[in-house]
């Protein structure tokens, strides 16, 4: 693994919510075209860590970030960073599917439109391409005008992924994307992530250890805001170095 392969990394990252020290000195590398999963018990700061990577913490009152998040060699927290451009480059899929109350088409076209694409042909192409990549095209091709709210939960989540793909991100953050879905939908999303890995850098937060083991190349274990252990997924699950990691993956934590 050479240094050029690191797509996004954190250096001594600290996050505070008022007096609460939520992320403590976390330094972590996430590699290009691979899936890194972040595991840990509820409240360990997994989602907070994820949100630090595309500055979604900016919209939370009282949140304060110290340390660096380096994307393609540049610290995204340095002055003059274009947050809007950053979030286009680092997309995010949320825990609960959050389609907008618009048609399927308008959901996917939302991002390209706010970034200034007006041509109908261009939008059509992006929508089709994104939906195909998100493995949803076959199911919705005939009903692009249908409200996204009428889709099933699993379809909604794939729509949200298509919506993220439509702005052509380089990194995609998944915040427990399957926690609200049934096993069949979950399997579809996992297949999808595996195929997306060929083009994108993926970071996924999950509380489901089997999921982390199934799909990710690297795994990081967080506990109480601290990075306990990081390494290749197979190694972490088979030969954890830390006692706490072992306890967690063998089920002694909640």
């Amino acid at each position: 693994m050479t240094r050029e392969d690191v797509k996004i990394s954190t250096r001594n990252l600290n996050v505070y919510f008022g007096d609460l020290h939520a992320i403590k000195n976390v330094s972590l590398q996430m590699y290009n075209r691979s899936i890194t999963s972040i595991i840990g018990p509820s409240g360990c700061g997994k989602s907070t860590f994820l949100r630090a990577l595309n500055r979604m913490l900016d919209i939370i009152p009282h949140a304060r970030v110290a340390g660096e998040v380096i994307l393609d060699g540049r610290n995204i927290y340095e002055n003059g960073t274009d947050v809007v451009e950053l979030r286009r480059k680092v997309g995010m899929v949320f825990q609960k599917p959050n389609p907008f109350p618009k048609s399927v088409y308008d959901n996917v076209a939302y991002g390209p439109r706010i970034h200034g694409i007006r041509s109908r042909d261009e939008l059509d192409a992006i929508v089709e391409d994104s939906l195909k990549k998100a493995a949803l095209w076959d199911e919705v091709a005939d009903s692009l005008d249908k409200s996204a709210m009428e889709l099933s939960g699993g379809q909604q989540q794939r729509l949200c992924i298509a919506r993220t793909l439509a702005v052509k991100p380089e990194v995609i953050l998944f915040d427990e994307p399957c926690s609200a879905l049934d096993p069949i939908s979950t399997a579809k999303i996992e297949d999808l992530m595996r195929s997306l890995k060929n083009d994108y850098t993926i970071v996924i937060v999950t509380h489901n250890m089997q999921q982390a083991a199934r799909i990710s190349d690297y795994t990081a274990f967080l506990l109480m805001g601290e990075l306990i252990e990081f390494g290749k997924t197979a190694r972490i699950f088979e030969r954890p170095c830390e006692k706490a990691t072992e306890d967690y993956i063998t089920g002694r934590f909640g």
Binding site: M56, I59, R87, G91, F94, K96, P101, Y110, H115, V167
Partner: peptide, 11 residues
């Protein structure tokens, strides 16, 4: 989700 979803897309 309506706000976060849009902001995460770079709105």
């Amino acid at each position: 989700g309506f706000r976060e979803g849009a902001i995460a897309l770079g709105a």
